[in-house]
Design a protein around this nucleic acid. Structure first.
Length: 382
DNA sequence: CGATCACGC
DNA sequence: GCGTGATCG
């Protein structure tokens, strides 16, 4: 860990927080606890009279989707979002990491839990290395603190490209999806072309974004309800897009139906390698419970098989590194990614062998693809 | 300690 | 869909 970097970052975020806080109190016309959704709800929806978009069990929702929708009506919601991002980054990551450094090793040693996630994934705790920010630039900066212990050593990150969709292609044997991966097409652009019945070169970035939501949604068993929320479109439009998808990817449709039927008969869903997850609620009388169980049943073979494959890769990686007496270390797993601390003499070897071992860990009817990055820290390695 | 929110894949 | 953690009340 680069603790000097984290210290500076903490100070910088603190300054931004103070500025945001002052602006928030100004816009709200008074002091309140910004971290309290309850107090914030009163300010937004009663004092300022903004329209409450969504409710929670206990009152007004103030989550990111709500505040995004209120952005164009009042300047406060955007400032709240900024403040929330800053506090999240500082309290969960920037200030938490240094406290977890082991004084003997000067490293942070988290736990990878093998018997927590129902699908067979690992989970990570104290700290959770599997949710270090990457999506926003400010968050991503935190990864600069995750660096090699010794000078001249490197961080190497290797991640499976679209592994879950490739597994869906294998399990469903859908000709369209299989062909896309055999051509190594941009899968979201490919799906957009299918759904909107256009040539790939005519796909706009907005259509691609829609297709990306659909691709992920399919693997989560999402229906028109969730898709409409994610894309901020009507329930009817979302339904039409899903219908178009299943008309083009009939193999995926059949596979999903088969998975649910089989789960109803057996009481479990399983991965390609036979790992089982009991899903009792699949035959529940309660509609909500049964629908949730269906989504879990659809997702288990995909998410669980990806977990099986990366675990096979990790075992083979360890055996190989031991046999070759390597000084480099496999240090993190992030569901579809492995991270290594690399001795400079071994860099070229690992750059070649790590993706090779990962790509061979699963035998699918479509190729597995692994992208590799190298740098002095986790930020540069991506 | 449940609820809410936000970070990741 | 699957997780962990900070914070509030």
């Amino acid at each position: 860990m680069d603790t000097k970097f984290l210290k500076i970052m903490s100070r910088n975020i603190g300054q931004k927080m103070t500025r945001a806080m002052e602006e928030i109190y100004d816009l709200a016309g008074g002091v309140f606890n910004i971290n309290s959704p309850k107090q914030l709800g009163l300010i937004l929806f009663e004092k300022l009279g903004l329209p409450p978009v969504k409710k929670t069990k206990t009152g007004y929702s103030t989550d990111v989707t709500v505040l995004e929708k209120l952005k164009n009506q009042h300047p406060l919601p955007e400032k709240i979002l900024e403040f929330r991002m800053l506090t999240k980054l500082r309290s969960t990551y920037v200030d938490a990491m240094p406290a977890l450094i082991n004084p003997k090793t000067l490293r942070v040693h988290g736990s990878f839990n093998q018997t927590v996630a129902a699908t067979g994934r690992l989970s990570s705790s104290n700290p959770n290395f599997q949710n270090i920010p990457i999506r926003t630039e400010m968050g991503r900066e935190i990864r600069k603190a995750f660096c090699a212990q010794e000078k001249d050593h490197f961080i190497l990150a290797a991640d499976y490209s679209q592994v879950e969709l490739r597994i869906m292609a294998h399990l469903s044997e859908d000709p369209n999806l299989v062909a896309a991966f055999k051509q190594d097409a941009d899968i979201h652009t490919h799906t957009a072309a299918m759904v909107f019945n256009l040539k790939q070169e005519d796909i706009t970035s907005d259509m691609r974004r829609t297709a990306k939501v659909i691709n992920f949604g399919i693997m989560y068993g999402a229906g028109a309800h969730r898709i409409s929320q994610e894309l901020n479109i009507s329930h009817g439009d979302a339904g039409a897009i899903i219908k178009a998808y299943f008309e083009r990817y009939t193999g995926v449709k059949d596979y999903i139906e088969k998975t649910i039927t089989e789960c109803k008969e057996l009481g479990y869903a399983s991965t390609l390698y036979g790992r089982k997850r009991p899903i009792q609620d699949i035959n529940s009388e309660n509609r909500n419970l049964q629908e949730a169980a269906k989504r879990a049943a659809i997702n288990m073979p995909v998410q669980g098989t990806a977990a099986d494959i990366i675990k096979i890769a990790m075992i083979r990686m360890h055996d190989w590194m031991k046999k070759e007496n390597l000084k480099s270390k496999m240090i993190l797993q992030v569901h579809d990614e492995l991270v290594f601390e690399v001795h400079p003499d071994e860099l070229e070897l690992l750059k070649k062998q790590v993706p090779a071992i990962m790509e061979l860990a699963g035998k699918l009817i479509v190729p597995l693809k692994v992208d590799v990055g190298v740098g002095k820290d986790w930020y540069e390695a991506h």
